[in-house]
């Protein structure tokens, strides 16, 4: 499969805190990739570099061969149209209700104007996340898990080429987590979207991903097909895998 996104030697520090230390990664078109790693290793920072929200100190982000940080404003906006980003802490617009939140990218990115069309797409998205009929609710009226799912719906709404999910299932109960993981698989298979997710749900990551990447202290320590990474002898990877599988299957 062809490479869609390529990260080369990506480094980022905040003051003395070296978050990313030369990350080399590539993401193939139409694949599902899971990024796994401890909290605070810079997974979210990596996503933000990929979207051009944070400028890396060193290294490059290539999207279809174009360097994101060398693009002018309009071309960057153009590239971003191909991305959907579900934030770790939902980042819903709290002055807008759920329906307006989901309609926002439809209006602004796709230029969709017809009310009926917008309403239908919003309803479709809410069905996908199993929260039908909550268009009129404000984000402040929702639970954390509901907000998170609305954030996912907002990212999915424009059916972009690439979807970045930052911990889509944390904070959800196992049943809902499963729903979201199935949703990721579904948009990947049915719509052919490239999905990259950050997750702590190791069993699910190994089940739904074409590729798994382990990050540790700002570096990639293991990557490849799930079966291959499963056999990794890196200490950190072993501990991650053992701890997550022993709790679910060891009993």
């Amino acid at each position: 499969m062809s490479t869609l996104i390529e990260l080369q030697e990506l480094s980022k520090a905040f003051g003395d805190l070296h978050v990313l230390r030369g990350v080399d990664l590539s993401f193939a078109d139409r694949e599902v990739t899971s990024l796994i790693g401890q909290s605070g290793t810079g997974k979210s920072v990596l996503f933000k570099c990929m979207m051009g929200l944070i400028e890396p100190d060193q290294g490059r982000v290539l999207y279809e061969g174009k360097d994101l940080h060398e693009l002018d404003e309009d071309s960057l906006a153009e590239v971003r149209r191909s991305f959907g980003y579900a934030f770790q802490d939902d980042a819903l617009f709290d002055s807008m209700n759920v329906g307006e939140n989901i309609a926002f990218p439809l209006r602004e990115v796709l230029g969709m104007r017809k009310r009926r069309q917008l309403r239908e797409r919003v309803a479709e998205m809410l069905d996908w996340i199993e929260l039908p009929g909550i268009e009129k609710k404000l984000p402040s009226e929702l639970s954390g898990g509901m907000r998170k799912r609305v954030g996912i719906a907002r990212a999915l709404a424009i059916k972009p080429k690439v979807l970045l999910f930052d911990e889509p299932t944390s904070g959800l109960d196992p049943v809902l987590g499963q729903t979201i993981n199935d949703l990721v698989l579904r948009v990947n298979k049915e719509l052919g979207l490239t999905c990259i997710l950050i997750t702590h749900d190791i069993p699910a990551a190994f089940r739904i991903s074409d590729r798994v990447v382990f990050l540790h202290e700002g570096e990639v320590i293991a990557q490849g097909a799930p079966a291959k990474v499963m056999r990794s002898d890196h200490d950190m990877v072993r501990r991650f895998i053992e701890n997550s599988f022993s709790s679910t299957e060891g009993a």
Binding site: G84, A91, D94
Partner: peptide, 18 residues
């Protein structure tokens, strides 16, 4: 400021809205 610290500004930028 609240929109900034809750990443709503970032979200806006990802949707190509300045």
């Amino acid at each position: 400021g609240t929109m900034k610290v809750t990443e709503q500004i970032d979200a806006m930028e990802t949707m190509s809205v300045d």
